[in-house]
Each structure stands twice: as C-alpha cells, then as structure tokens.
Write a protein that binds this DNA or RNA. Structure first.
Length: 228
DNA sequence: CGTTGAATAT
DNA sequence: GATATTCAAC
C-alpha cells in the first residue's frame, strides 16, 4: 500500500471542543454552528450578480488555517523581538487544560523549581528541553491536523506557537514520534503484549514515575538546568 | 540558500 | 531513554 496525500484536515475546532483554546478570546462570541459556513458565500449568488459583485473566491479551511498561522507567526515574532522575557502569549493559562483522562491526571500541582530560572543572554547553551505531556499534546494535535505528509519541523514549530521552542527541538521530537507511529502501525492489529501504549499514556506513566519536583503544568517549554 | 531527516553524540 | 547535534541530501 502506498503513501497517498489525503488533503484531510479533521478540524473539530468548530464543533468538537476537545482542543485547547484561548477561551478568553472566545468569550461572548457566537459558536461555530451559529456562523455562516465557510463554503457559503456571504452574498447570495443572485444578489451578487444583480449588483455586479464578482463571485467570492472559495475559501477553504486550509486557507483559513494558513492565514491564521501567518497571523500567529507574526504575533510571535513581534512579541519575542519586543522584549527578552516572554509575554503571555503561548496559550492556555490557568483555567483550561482538560485532559481526556479526566480526574486520573495524576497531577498534583507541584511547580518545578530547584534552581531553574531565566537563561540570560550570556550563556549560549540552551538548557535541555523537557517534553511535558502538555507540550507533547500540543505537538500531537498539530501533527494530526497537518497530516503526516505536511508535518515537518518548521511548520509544526510555527503552529505550536510555543515561546522558545526551536525547530531543532521539534525535529528531534518528531524523529522519535515517527518511530513510535511506525511501531504502532506495525502492530496495528497484533496485541501480543497487554501493554498497549498510547503515546500520551507513555508520558503519563513517566510523569507518574517521576514523582519528583517536575510538574510544570504550563504550555511553556520546560527546561532543565545544565549550564556548562 | 534553507530545510529535512537519519545517524550519531551527549 | 530522552534530547541535542551533526551532516548528507533535497
């Protein structure tokens, strides 16, 4: 079976709701089902013809996504060049974060401390990035929406929109994630081992095992101090 | 040129 | 094992 290019973008964003969103931005706005579908022109064809309005160019979900990504990218640039410390822009702060597991999320709420602070410009070596479950979820969401075909490091990095996250960080993680996916497909219907791991499950187990200081329940990248 | 991806290093 | 770095290839 070959590889094909399914131009598929399963956007449950307009109706689903299992995605992380900045709810404050959406407060008071009409829901997706109350809005005119993208495929439907704002001006009826007959009326448009009567007033000699040229037909609107069809706007696909992909177009909207591109525009959105471009906007987000511009904002990201502007905010990062404006000041050295991160402004609040990555996403999800405080009152969101709904895991599919629900109450099982083992989390406590212990924020990580232990000497982590701000990397000042003097040290050129960046600390080691830790892929928290939150970060990983963002990564997986973006990859899923892009499709394996278009999911390349730079694009993923831009759409994740996480301050401080580099293309290299994503590339490295993507390499591992692809191996994981391949393994899963290889054992798609085989279940010889009772330990059926879901990527997120894997991460949850790791978190549970590391009962220690790490928790970092934010969508910012978590760095581990390793100055040289 | 910049980006990607696999191998390799820490 | 997880993440970083390197480097041939595109």
């Amino acid at each position: 079976m070959g590889e094909e290019a399914p131009e598929e973008y399963d956007l449950d964003m307009l109706g689903g709701g299992e995605h992380e969103r900045v709810m404050e931005w959406e407060a008071g706005l009409p829901g997706g089902d109350e809005l005119t579908p993208l495929s439907q022109p704002l001006v009826p064809a007959g009326l448009a013809a009567a007033f000699r309005i040229p037909p609107e160019p069809g706007r696909t979900l992909l177009d909207v996504h591109r525009a959105s990504a471009a906007t987000v990218f511009r904002l990201r640039r502007a905010s990062s060049s404006s000041s050295s410390s991160f402004p609040a822009f990555a996403a999800s702060k405080g009152a969101d974060e709904a895991e599919s597991g629900g109450a099982g999320g083992g989390g406590g709420g212990a924020a990580s401390e232990g000497g982590n602070g701000n990397n000042n410009s003097s040290s050129s070596k960046r600390a080691r990035l830790v892929w928290t479950p939150q970060l990983h979820k963002r990564f997986v969401d973006v990859v899923a929406h892009l499709g394996m075909k278009n999911a390349v490091p730079k694009t993923i990095m831009q759409l994740m929109n996480v301050e401080g996250l580099t293309r290299e960080n994503v590339a490295s993680h993507l390499q591992k994630y692809r191996l994981y996916v391949k393994r899963m497909q290889g054992l798609s219907n085989e279940g010889p081992s009772p330990s059926d791991h879901t990527h997120l499950d894997v991460y949850k187990r790791q978190m549970h095992h590391h009962h220690h200081a790490y928790a970092a329940v934010s969508s910012y990248p978590h760095y581990h101090y390793a100055d040289k």
